[in-house]
Amino acid sequence: MCGLCGVFGTEAHWTDAARPDSGSGAPPGGWTRRRERLHRVGLANKVLKHYGLTLADWNGNCFVLRSRTGRSAIVQHLAALWPVAERMAGRRCDPLDPALIAAVERE
């Protein structure tokens, strides 16, 4: 548990494994955990903007999801992100939605 904020250590999620820097030795191309999280936030935001939401890293420990109306929520990993995003956006976050696919293809 973090002594400062009282957040319990989180369980590893499958998306945290098999990163390019997993395994032993230095990561290829200097890939680091910090860099991976920035990459994750950047990519997720390209999808989330379709729903009027933004994601930010919070101390390398979890993520903060925010809506345009100022609502915010903490999520621990990607699987936990989507149910929260659906509640905030008030609609389904579906990667098979043709409108979302078209928006992602236009990026």
Partner: peptide, 17 residues
Amino acid sequence: LDWTAFGIWLTMLLGAH
């Protein structure tokens, strides 16, 4: 595949379907 993009996509797919 970009591992991060795949993770975002599959978690979203499994969340919805």
